[in-house]
Design a protein around this nucleic acid. Structure first.
Length: 467
RNA sequence: UCCCCGAUAGCUCAGUCGGUAGAGCAGCGGACUGUUAAUCCGCUUGUCGUAAGUUCGAGUCUUACUCGGGGAGCCA
């Protein structure tokens, strides 16, 4: 239900532009994208973030604010009271004939945003102002809608939303380097026998920021059957790529009584639901991306929304790569992890769309993944998509206590640190599965933006935590 | 962390063989009764990333460093 008229005292630009008839006097507030002056008339383009388009404000010589309007610059924040009338000009159906204009915040010639296209790299250096641009307005509106779509999808299907902890003492999840959380004095930490006495730290043990909510998600899946998490995740890896951030958001469903096939089906349903949702609810913004960022975007999204995903086992993928006749920088051999170039070739060249690769060799995957009957592979799956690469990683979890204990031994993980995790296998264990989807990677896929730093409001990457 | 590329006006970029800095946009002033990143005329803008070196002379060549980008690894 649309309640964007929740305030009686002013209109949002989006609602005005959707008007089907003249509305009489309106009051609007926002920021100016452009100011065009002629001898007897000033045109203002007013944007309030409600939609991509701006509202045209026409200030005639008869307006009490004609003088004021002529002195406004790009970026100024104003309120306008005026009559909403059909626009005689090209390019918009409605415009506001300005009466009184209130200037909340003027700008001067040092305002960094101009009415021209800026490079994304430059805009990253002014991340506090970039939401006021067309591209980032579109990005963050889409981000908001898609976040909502995540909850819609799972809530409609009876999944319980779990807020897994951000501070955790799990140090052996194997998903990446952790940021340390401590209140010990870094200059002079307490020591026992020369080693830092972590038991004297705030939580009585060594803690860090979560690298995944999966393990706790599994605990809740053994009570609520179907659950999901959606929250921030932190990796202290020194990754300097367009696809990695130190702080990002991840969606992790975990489902009981499910094998890998059900897991893949859920991932596909989810992915396609989100794409359809974006096409339906973010149309204007997607058209902007399609026009200025990625010309094939909408066509690609529509195809993905309407087509079943392909799937192949790791073993088959290796065979297909070997038979491709293509020479890769890294050799293709069973037992080796797929390199980025291999993944790209599979999803972009061989399949030309999203692709599940399943059943990887157990040596290259995490300890908790369920061992297959062949004794060599585990029930793991990655979803690869063109341009972005790996966007989902998941697996059926090892629910057999003895097998899991052996795996932990083989991976050099001390069972003592995860007794609570093993307890779920001790009592009332059940087959279950789950996956993680990188929210920003999905946004990259949906918007065509090519850098993870440009789909997260204030990106954190090695060497940068500004704003 | 490794490999490659880059850093010149507020922004986007050009700058030849080493010879002393330039275009568009923005900004400022003016013109124009309705524009769509308006148009037209005029004007202003520089520690050439930092430090050192080679040279009569360095934006240009060399080295180191800083920052940014692309790729790789790690992964989402």
């Amino acid at each position: 239900m649309d309640r964007s008229d929740w305030r009686q005292d002013r209109w949002r630009v989006k609602r005005i532009l959707q008007a089907e008839q003249a509305q009489g006097e309106v009051f609007v507030q926002g920021w100016l994208r452009t100011v065009r002056r002629s001898k007897g008339v000033v045109f203002l383009a007013l944007n309030d973030g409600s939609c991509l388009d701006s509202l045209q404000i026409v200030v005639g010589e008869d307006s009490p604010s004609f003088q004021v309007a002529g002195e406004l610059g790009t970026g100024a924040c104003i309120g306008v009271r005026g009559m909403l009338v059909p626009s005689p000009g090209e390019g918009q159906n409605w415009e506001v004939q300005a009466g009184l204009i209130t200037v909340y915040g003027a700008t001067d010639e040092t305002f960094p945003l101009q009415k021209k296209r800026h490079g994304f790299e430059y805009l990253r250096t002014i991340a506090h102002l970039r939401p006021r641009t067309n591209a980032f307005g579109a990005v963050f509106r889409v981000r908001s809608r898609i976040a909502h779509a995540v909850h819609s999808f799972f809530q409609e299907r009876g999944f319980v939303y779990v807020q897994t902890p951000i501070i955790t003492a799990n140090d052996c999840e194997g998903a990446g380097e952790m940021f340390r959380v401590t209140t010990l004095d870094p200059e002079n930490p307490p020591r026992v026998d020369g080693r830092i006495a972590w038991h004297e730290d705030f939580f009585g043990s060594k803690t860090g920021l979560t690298v995944s909510g999966q393990l706790q998600g599994e605990l809740f899946a053994t009570a609520f059957t179907d659950i999901y998490t959606f929250g921030p995740t932190f990796r202290a890896e020194n990754s300097n790529t367009s696809r990695h951030a130190s702080e990002f958001w991840m969606i992790e469903p975990e489902i009981a009584f499910a094998d890998l096939a059900v897991n893949c089906q859920l991932a596909e349903d989810f992915f396609r639901f989100m794409v359809s949702y974006a096409l339906e609810h973010c149309r204007d913004d997607l058209e902007f991306f399609n026009k200025f960022i990625d010309n094939g975007l909408i066509e690609r999204l529509e195809k993905v929304a309407g087509t079943a995903f392909q799937s192949m086992s790791y073993t088959e993928a290796i065979n297909r790569l070997q038979r491709s006749g293509r020479s890769f920088e890294f050799p293709v051999a069973w037992g080796c992890d797929l390199q980025s170039e291999h993944e790209r070739y599979l999803t972009e060249q061989i399949v030309g769309g999203p692709l599940f690769v399943t059943d990887y060799p157990q040596g290259i995957k995490a300890f908790y993944m369920r061992r297959n009957d062949d004794g060599k592979t585990v029930a793991a799956m990655d979803l690869l998509v063109p341009k972005v690469g790996e966007i989902i990683g998941g697996s059926q979890r090892e629910e057999r206590l003895d097998v899991l204990q052996h795996k932990m031994e083989a991976f050099d993980i001390l069972p003592a640190s995860l007794e609570w995790y093993l307890d779920t296998r001790r009592w009332g264990s059940c087959p279950h599965a789950g996956f993680g989807l990188g929210f920003e990677r999905f946004l990259m896929y949906i918007t065509g933006m090519e850098n993870v730093r440009d789909v997260i409001p204030f990106p954190r990457t090695p060497g940068n935590a500004r704003f």
